[in-house]
Design a protein around this nucleic acid. Structure first.
Lengths: 256, 256
DNA sequence: CGTTACCTTGAATCTCCTCAATACACGTGG
DNA sequence: CCACGTGTATTGAGGAGATTCAAGGTAACG
């Protein structure tokens, strides 16, 4: 279940990263932008926002004048019921785009919270329309990102609705591992997972206790280790089998 | 659980409906298109496809050269695991857009199946790019539709992950009732629901038997009637309370 | 060195699943 | 017309799976 953690501290205007030399764009997972596109992104970008772990980035039911791209760090998207039950919808990693719903509808339909310290690129949402008018390639990219989110939510819905306990845990852990690997966050099959068993429980729709017992059972398969923050995959093939079927992680993607 | 039903019969080129006089556009729920937009939609539209109930419209893992808009009828979007377990992701009603994933990724990530006879507007996907280039308003609409799908999937994920049995059933029934009402398919609080308890079970992540028993329990609240195909709401406020919290149905939407 | 956050485990209970049987409506072919 | 098969809805019984409650353990941090 959720805990309340409402601090939102952060620094505006830290040392800026020019889009041309964006560290994320070095990664082959992101499609190459043209010079004009990069120039536009630079003009679109209103600054950077640095937030501590635990900060709230966007709030369900409210509206932000900004769109964000995660430059570094992890965040979590979730929705809550009145009595405190909480469902994690998805995780946000570097390159992920946040706040589109607020620019399209009257308000956000979920909350986004930083799991680690994060650096966000900030875009004023009133310029989103300019992007559609002047850079159709980027407009298509925005649609791409929305469609990808839809795909992930669909995979998670299948997981929560149909998979059994060990499958659910294996599926989510492997999915996050593979996303992290695509972003070159994995070294020697190890990656820092900055979330707790409670986050995992709220992702797969189980209680914390049952999630813990399922993890205990899964550890006997010796397909992974997860101690403290470090997650290590020992037998990816077998873990993928335990997950039932793995979620697709597109190999090339846009970086708005 | 799923049954296999692979017939795909249909008639191409039936009497065509010109976009200008599209019956759906009479409905105030859809935003008004400019003359140029209507003209483009007319040129974008490649024809109409009429399919019987049970027909498969799009198949997970494959790719279709077409995009579709539902002109009339109901369809269901679902994903299956190898052993036959099936998760319904969403329902498609008139005005809903189908096949975007196939135009953005290598293939569809879910299957779409007609629940009733349906009439679909057919669009060649290679012209989607022209839409982005020439009609940014429509491009934004495509993004809007993708974001709306994301919102609904998020609501369903919360429902399956966190709500208890009666809440799940009430939530989905009310959500579909309200979507149907927006499309003027509801007369005297009654609407034809063209799906079975098995479809509902696969939507909320329960077995058919347990779904049936939950329905029996819910009927005692006298908030609705559901006999045969007809669904009638008797006490919407109370039903909404039983659902826990209702999903948003945007009041104005685009019709691609 | 106490507090806090997170992880772990056991016991009792309840929710939900599977299996199995029955009932009903409908359409098809004899 | 009736007999039969099929799809859907309903109900009971027994057991697997998940929840809640409760307690204890460990590492990090001031």
């Amino acid at each position: 279940m959720a805990r309340s953690n409402n601090k939102t501290r952060g620094n505006a205007s830290p040392p800026q990263t020019p889009c041309k030399s964006c560290p994320l764009r070095q990664n082959k997972a992101f499609r190459r932008f043209s010079a004009e596109e990069l120039e536009f992104m630079q003009s679109f970008k209103g600054g950077e926002l640095v937030l501590d772990a635990g900060s709230t980035i966007l709030v369900e039911g409210t509206n932000s004048p900004h769109l964000y791209t995660v430059l570094s760090g992890w965040a979590i998207k979730h929705k809550s019921l009145e009595d405190g039950r909480r469902q994690v919808l998805n995780f946000a990693l570097p390159g992920d785009f946040l706040g589109l719903q607020g620019s399209i509808f009257e308000s956000m339909h979920h909350t986004v919270e930083a799991l680690t310290g994060v650096v966000l690129c900030v875009f004023p949402r009133e310029k989103l329309w300019t992007l559609y008018e002047k850079h159709q390639g980027l407009a298509f990219d925005v649609t791409w990102l929305a469609a990808r989110e839809e795909t992930i939510l669909g995979d998670y819905l299948v997981t929560v609705g149909q998979r059994r306990a060990t499958e659910r845990v294996a599926f989510v852990l492997l999915h996050l591992f593979r996303r992290a690997r695509q972003l070159e966050l994995v070294r020697a099959n190890k990656v820092a997972f900055p979330f707790t068993q409670e986050h995992l429980a709220d992702t797969i729709g189980f209680s914390l206790v049952h999630t813990n017992k399922t993890l205990k059972q899964l550890r006997r398969t010796a397909t992974f280790k997860w101690t403290g923050t470090e997650f290590e995959v020992l037998d990816e093939k077998k873990l993928a089998e335990l997950a039932g079927e793995s979620a697709s992680v597109p190999s090339v993607r846009p970086l708005i």
